[in-house]
Computed example of a mutant assay.
Amino acid sequence: MSQTDRPDPHAPPTFGERVTRIIGAVAGDPIARAELDMARVLDELKALGAEPIEDLTPEEARRQPTPADAVSSLMAKFGIPPADADVTSHDVVYPGAGGDLPARVYHPPGAAGPRPLILYFRGGGWVFADLDDYDSSPRAIAARTDAVVVSADFRRAPEHKFPAAHEDAVAAYRWVVERATELGGDGERFAIVGESAGGNLAINVAIAARDQGLTAPKHLALIYPLAGVDMSTPSFRINEHARPLNKAIVGWLLGHALLGVDQKEDPRLDLVNRADLHGLPPTTLLTAEIDPLRSEGHMLADKLRGAGVAVNAVDFEGVAHGFFGMGDLVRHARSAQELIGRDLGQSLAPLERGARVGRAL
Rank of each mutant, 00 (worst) to 15 (best):
S73G: 03
D100W: 00
V93R: 15
I80H: 03
K77H: 07
S89R: 15
D86T: 14
Y106M: 06
V105M: 05
G79S: 06
P102C: 02
V71L: 11
R104P: 10
G98N: 12
L74P: 03
A70W: 07
P81W: 00
V105W: 00
A68V: 00
V92Y: 01
G99S: 07
I80P: 04
P81Y: 00
D100M: 01
H107C: 03
D84E: 12
S89P: 08
A85W: 07
T88Q: 12
A97M: 06
K77E: 14
G99P: 11
V92E: 14
D91C: 03
G96F: 03
V87W: 02
G79K: 09
V71D: 02
D100E: 15
I80E: 13
P81G: 01
D100R: 13
D86G: 02
G99K: 12
A97D: 11
H90F: 13
A97V: 04
H107I: 05
H90Y: 14
K77L: 14
A103Q: 05
D86Y: 05
F78H: 13
A76V: 06
A76F: 01
T88H: 04
M75F: 04
D91E: 14
S73M: 05
A97T: 12
D91L: 04
L74K: 02
S89C: 11
A76E: 15
D86I: 07
V93F: 02
D69G: 08
L101C: 09
K77A: 14
V87Q: 02
G99Q: 06
V71T: 10
A103K: 02
I80Y: 03
G99N: 04
D69S: 09
L101Q: 13
S73E: 07
P102W: 02
L101A: 05
D69K: 06
D84I: 00
A103E: 11
V93Q: 15
G79Y: 09
V87P: 02
G79M: 07
V71Y: 04
S89A: 15
Y106H: 14
V71N: 04
V105R: 01
D69T: 05
H107A: 15
D84M: 04
V71E: 10
D69N: 13
S73A: 15
S89W: 12
R104L: 07
G96A: 01
A70F: 03
D100I: 00
A97H: 15
A103T: 10
D91G: 12
D69R: 05
I80V: 15
V71C: 12
G79H: 06
R104E: 11
V71F: 03
Y106K: 10
S89L: 13
G79Q: 09
T88K: 13
G96L: 03
V92I: 15
A85C: 02
D86L: 10
G96Q: 07
P102H: 01
H107R: 15
A68T: 11
V92C: 03
S89D: 13
L74S: 07
A68Y: 09
R104K: 11
G99Y: 10
